[in-house]
Amino acid sequence: MNKKLFRTGGLVALLLIATFTGGCVQAPQPLQEPLPVYIAEVNMAQGITAFQYSNYGLAQQKFLNALAIYRGIDDPDGLVRACINLSETLLSQDRTKEAVTFLDMARYITERENFSQYPARIDIVASSIAIAENRLQDALTILNKYLRPVAPEGTENEIIAAALQNMVYLAFLSEDIAVEPWIERYARSLKETENVSPSSLARLYRFQGMLLQSQGSSEKSDGYFADALKIYRETLSRGSIAATHTEWARALIEQNRLQVAEDRLKRALAVRTEMRDRNGCLEVLQLLLEVRIRRGDKAGEEEVRQWLAEVSNPASISWPGILNF
């Protein structure tokens, strides 16, 4: 009987506490997204994942799906984000003209809707496109806005880091800009950043490797390239792996270490072929041709020329056979 009483009392006490404390947790619940927005966001998320794994074809398809949905519900914010993502994806495939089309669309909607969070982001893509099209002065004009001693108010660290990366690369391409101060500034900005992304750090190593190479310190530069490669392999950034191999090969060609350079180029070519990146393959093949000419390898030179002709032809479907090199 006592046991029963105890049980009843305990249960009543629990219920009373739950009732009184329950009043404290009554807060408005976050609203669920409407279904079309949810589907569009799923497409965007899938596209970003595909982009991160360098699957640009799939990423493009997903962003186009999202764009169509955002258009259908007249969602300007979603439209801008989809356009920026598409522009980045197309730029990664060296399809700069199409990238510009989507970026212009993003810019137009941003200005029309007076969005404050997107202009800087659009500018960074615009600077990357300008560099890809070798319009260095245009790129410099855009980047200067974010690299003044005091950046525009509200500029995120991410934007400044991207602007610095583009600036350093621009400095390497331009003969009039000193590279070293920009690399130092980039390194400083990374030190000041709380959570440095692996890709930002790897990018710094690549810049340092390229700088040391240009200064003749080939051994040290090899170390930096190797560190960058290690990070990219861990994060499975295929485009960056290929780019690092190519940059490293350029450095090795300058040192006249042709055999090692050829090995790096073949590895870069394998990655670019796997990515079905025709322009990337052409860039690597050009370097490989240079290596074989310098090595006096006539048969090898002819072989590379054949592959260059094959890959240059947009209708060719046999070029993935390049992997049998």
Partner: peptide, 15 residues
């Protein structure tokens, strides 16, 4: 999260 929702992080040139 300070990230813009569903937006690719800014990509540097020549990747």
């Amino acid at each position: 999260s300070t990230e813009q929702p569903y937006l690719i992080t800014p990509q540097p040139a020549h990747e």
